[in-house]
Design a protein around this nucleic acid. Structure first.
Lengths: 340, 340
DNA sequence: CTGAAAGCGCTTACAG
DNA sequence: CTGAAAGCGCTTACAG
């Protein structure tokens, strides 16, 4: 097995020092005043031997890996994989690679992943955190480790974060359903302990309040994350039983909407005709499944771009050891698509 | 800024050598006969100082990163993100983390990613390759770099790979459409230069041949990858114009099917009633969109598990420098879901 | 039962 | 214009 060619190999072959070779290969040749001739020789030799630097060694030396860690609840969720894509693109533009891990909304796994990423030397972490993972997150804060959360955040912690205007979008969607004549709007939501979801629920309530409609707890279906496919069935059954004249549905995630559509379909319910619908975020298939659904579309590209920009900013700050670490809070607006 | 605690810190604090501390912390204490007492002291101190090993340093030393690189055409494609999820889970079980990159089906980007992953020291690469990326792949082969391709493969190269029974599944699906009475089955496919797709196309042709139906090139719609949303419209328009009595559609990917459904929908075509449908792979929404579509479901979990098992096998082989590198070829069957 | 020392492949202050 | 040498934080043969 032929070993990879190293700086040393090139240096020995050329009777130069590793220093010189390193400088040339890192574009410091001019600054260090290496002769044109030497530069050329080194470059040629490197190409010839197909030199690829060992970035591990460099990382150990400079304390940076040019890698960032991305932690998502689940990479196979369409929203998160879209975000991942944006973040990857943006990271690439700045010369960074991505380590990805799914927390499966399990805070034990999340803590393990954070530790692993740190051990493996990522320069920063972007995370859509699970509720309880505060221990490791707080430690990251203490260490001033570059970190940005998105989609979710901890009001009590001073991490940078990027979220959407949850309450406002929910408010507007609900208001719109009311304006379309709805009196009994069901709220289908999940993980209400997340501030993100709490805010969406509040928007719904506030809209009802402002419209003079009494909030009816029976119309709230809180679908727990695990095994939601079966849970939502019971929840919807219950709503139809207790409030037969339900006339609208507000879904706080597209996953819930899709699952509900399956339910309606199985029950033979012509949901597009019978109900006004609204949802936070949407997928292109809604055009077929529910052409008249009202959507607050999340700014996926913006979320990704902001996440990287802020994280790289924090990394820069840290390297310049400017002492204080800033906190960047970004609230991005959703784009509303309202029908009629 | 407090520096992370290192082996040296612990050693100095305890008046022990780095050697001893390292052995204890790596579970080699018994083998090396470290006294129980020393073990305890070290472990406690490590916990107290919240020691987290610098895996970069270890990697540089042992030449392994316990990280594998995953290269996908696009992480936001549901099929690939599902695979990514399986691979991540399997990798985690074996103590590996994942670096992920999207090639965007661009072989230049793919080559860059491969080089980057190698430079960053991944122990092996799992890739769904783009047609032309053979240069770097061949180099990986030459270097006996642990590598497995999935979904696609290169017949001329001796890489390990995992594919599905493309021809057979396509054959059976097409045959089924024929048995349901179809005479004019359109084939909607993409990237036909990929062996994967070539095989699917062949299965279709073979089924027609065996059924005594003449192959009609006009019924073949080859949707190129870039900008497929608009291209498929033209292609479908063309088919309807030239072969108005088209009575069946075989889609070689679920993406194409979904896009076609959008088209049908926009044109007001009641496709579920008018046509027999078949598709390689499916998504749960098909239950609503096209309840009677015939599916050959890809074994996502199996693909992921096999990919990791084979890759880890190759990594092991390489470390044991057993000289020869085996080639593992796995062809997994799809599960057919046929209606009526 | 424990330690001194070399080495993994780079970078970089220092010296000339 | 170029080089010798230390160091990043680990692991591990070797020695005792």
């Amino acid at each position: 097995m032929k070993k990879r060619t190293s700086l040393k190999d090139i240096a020995e072959k050329l009777n130069l020092s590793k220093t010189t070779v390193s400088w040339v290969l890192n574009g410091q040749a001019e600054k260090k005043g290496i002769s044109k001739n030497t530069q050329e020789i080194v470059l040629n030799c490197a190409k010839e031997l197909h030199y690829q630097p060992n970035l591990i060694a460099r990382s150990l030396n400079i304390g940076q890996t040019k890698t960032i860690g991305l932690i998502l609840p689940s990479i196979s969720d369409f929203f998160y994989s879209s975000i991942a894509r944006e973040i990857e693109n943006q990271a690439n533009l700045h010369g960074y690679s991505l380590m990805i891990a799914s927390s499966e909304s399990d805070f034990n796994k999340e803590e393990l992943v954070i530790q692993m990423f740190k051990s493996k030397g990522v320069d920063g972490i972007i995370i859509a955190p699970t509720k309880r993972s505060k221990v490791e997150i707080e430690r990251l804060m203490l260490e001033k480790f570059p970190l940005v959360t998105f989609d979710r955040y901890f009001p009590e912690l001073e991490t940078s974060y990027i979220i959407i205007d949850n309450k406002e979008s929910s408010y507007k969607l609900t208001k719109h359903l009311v304006s379309r004549g709805c009196k009994n709007i069901a709220l289908i939501t999940t993980n209400s302990y997340l501030t993100t979801m709490g805010e969406r629920n509040e928007g719904y309530k506030q809209a009802l309040l402002d419209s003079g409609i009494k909030f009816n707890p029976t119309l709230v279906g809180n679908v727990e994350y695990e095994d939601y496919e079966t849970k939502i069935v019971k929840i919807l059954d219950n709503i139809f039983e207790k409030v037969p004249d339900v006339d609208g549905f507000f879904f706080t995630t597209h996953i819930l909407a899709l699952e509900a559509f399956l339910y309606f379909n199985n029950r033979g319910i012509d949901f597009n005709r019978q109900f006004q619908l609204a949802c936070i975020h949407g997928v292109s298939l809604f055009k077929i499944l529910a052409p008249k659904i009202n959507i607050a579309r999340m700014p996926v590209a913006d979320i990704g771009k902001n996440a990287i920009d802020i994280l790289l900013g924090e990394i820069r700050e840290k390297n310049e050891q400017s002492g204080e670490k800033g906190q960047y809070k970004v609230v991005l607006p959703c784009t509303l698509y309202l029908n009629n």
